[in-house]
Design a protein around this nucleic acid. Structure first.
Length: 477
RNA sequence: CGAGGUGUGGCUCAGUUUGGUUAGAGCGCUACGUUAGGGACGUAGAGGCCGCAGGUUCAAAUCCUGUCACCUCGACCA
């Protein structure tokens, strides 16, 4: 395959330096701006519009399963945070504390929420009394703060936007069912809308959420072969309920503890969109998440009638999200701008086209050019957007599959980890000692034990004892 | 938190080793004109407490001390 000509000098090539490429895209596409606070980013209009689209569509998916939105305070009293032992141990090292208010030292420190389990639990303990009060299916859209040591735009920032769903159920079965249901909502959304294929599975004991009974995850593979945990769904069992005293009276007038879940996705998912679909010209957005789907670019726009024709095309494409770039930049500039910002389709319209009653449609992902008659432009745009959405998912899947390896011996595992970036499937005994040894030898962590299990060997890749689970391993963000 | 690196117009950087008039360049920005199918060109202009604080010196972007911020890698991390 011929080496693609590099059109935008301002973006470092992926091959040269993937991390730098990522930073360049994030900046050149104007997704974010660094702020004056370390590790906190400013979401610019394009970055925020993508988040709004994610939010709108996921929110509808949640509500279709009966979830309601609430809003909780952003501060958590220290005493409340400390009620669940594992939870506080997991989060204490990275919380920000408020020690003063209005110039006075506070009686009790307040932490800025790193996650809101404790607030929801406290709340639930007050409002749940009877089996008739269950289930509670609440979600909130908010930001949380974690005092991270190193940060990267979208992937890890000190403050980030997310949603956190928190549910309370009468039975363990119902909680488990909800945990899996929400993981499926996430995975379906990612495939259908973001065109990112996900591996669904369970986290190891070591990787699971602080205080959870079980954590489920969706894992995606980035273009550089590193894994990104893109969303999680936790089954808390009755652990938090016991710590917070969340009890209800059942049909037989007996006191019972509730069973809880929590689940979340964050702006990190935007990092996944960038690193799965982006190329050396910048961002590539799947049509279903793109804030602008079509950019009409007039050629020689000073010429009589060209701009009018561009606006006319925009009006005719009313069912899509269309903009006209009528700035006085040169056409070449506008092409690059549209590409850097990941706008799925561009329509070029100039004097030559007008004469022939046609326009040129260019796909962002393949740069394929299509000359279409103006008479059928609505139909063509619809078709191309759909094709693009479908093919982006197919390409991402093909890339992931081509970078998924299997290892049955440690030597094999080490050889792959050292030379081939991607997922490694290997059998594991689920002993944490092996997990640690694998990390030490290969820098790979366990990503998940997928729902779709295969028996590729009898014994653990590390210790040789009988294996209990096929596990995905990889270097992770 | 450890190792390394970087702070000079909006951006990318030169100048620092060897202290010396008025601190430079390219890009971007503004105005006018010519252009226009893959980041056009000309002319004229605006824009700098050289990260911050001390110190050395006749003289500091440059040397010394401290400090802050950011970046990369590692450790850590739902």
């Amino acid at each position: 395959m011929a080496k693609e000509k590099k059109l935008v000098e301002a973006i470092t090539s992926m091959e040269v330096d993937f991390a730098q490429w990522y930073t360049d895209v994030v900046k050149k596409a104007e997704l974010i701006e660094y702020s004056s606070i370390r590790g906190c980013m400013i979401l610019r209009p394009l970055g925020y519009a993508i988040w709004e689209n994610i939010q709108r569509q996921l929110d509808a998916d949640f509500k279709a399963t009966g979830v309601e939105n609430v809003y909780m305070p952003m501060f958590i009293p220290e005493s409340l945070l400390q009620k669940e032992k594992d939870h506080v141990e997991g989060f204490a090292p990275e919380v920000a504390w408020v020690t003063h208010g209005g110039g006075e030292k506070l009686q009790e420190r307040l932490c800025v929420r790193p996650t809101s389990e404790t607030l929801f639990c406290d709340f639930y303990s007050n409002i749940i009394h009877s089996y008739r009060d269950l289930p509670k299916l609440y979600n909130q859209w908010c930001s949380v703060v974690r005092w991270e040591k190193t940060t990267r735009p979208f992937l890890r920032s000190m403050e980030f936007l997310w949603q956190e769903g928190h549910t309370a159920h009468a039975t363990a079965e119902e909680a488990e069912e909800r945990t899996i249901q929400m993981l499926n909502v996430y995975a379906d959304f990612c495939e259908r809308v973001l065109a990112i294929p996900m591996i669904k599975g369970r986290k190891s004991e070591k990787e699971k959420f602080a205080g959870a009974h079980a954590t489920y995850t969706i894992e995606a593979l980035m273009h550089d072969g590193k894994a990104l945990q893109s969303g999680t769904s936790h089954n808390f069992g009755d652990g938090f309920a016991r710590a917070f005293g969340i009890q209800y009276t059942d049909q037989n007038n007996k006191l019972q503890y509730v069973h809880q879940t929590s689940w979340g996705v964050s702006t990190r998912i935007i990092g996944a969109i960038i690193m799965v679909h982006g190329d050396d010209s910048g961002l590539v957005l799947p049509p279903r998440i793109a804030p602008t789907q079509v950019m009409v670019i007039p050629i020689n726009q000073k010429k009589e009638g060209v701009l009018d024709k561009a606006y006319e095309i925009k009006d005719r494409l009313g069912e899509f999200k269309v903009k006209v770039d009528d700035s006085d930049k040169s056409p070449g500039w506008k092409f690059s701008e549209q590409e850097m910002r990941g706008i799925p389709l561009r329509i070029e319209i100039g004097p030559k086209d007008m004469e022939a009653n046609q326009a040129v449609i260019v796909r962002r992902d393949t740069r394929e050019k299509l000359v279409v008659s103006l008479d059928e432009i609505e139909k063509k745009v619809g078709e191309v957007l759909e094709t693009m959405q479908r093919e982006m998912l197919e390409r991402a899947k093909a890339h992931r599959d081509a970078h998924t390896y299997t290892a049955t011996t440690m030597a094999e595992f080490e050889e792959i980890a050292a030379n081939k970036p991607g997922f490694i499937k290997a059998m594991w005994c689920q002993d944490e000692a092996c997990e640690n040894e694998i990390k030490e030898k290969t820098a790979c962590t366990s990503r998940c034990m997928p729902f779709e299990q295969e028996q590729i060997a009898e014994t653990c890749v590390c210790c040789g004892k009988p294996a209990t689970a096929l596990t995905y391993w990889g270097k992770a963000y």
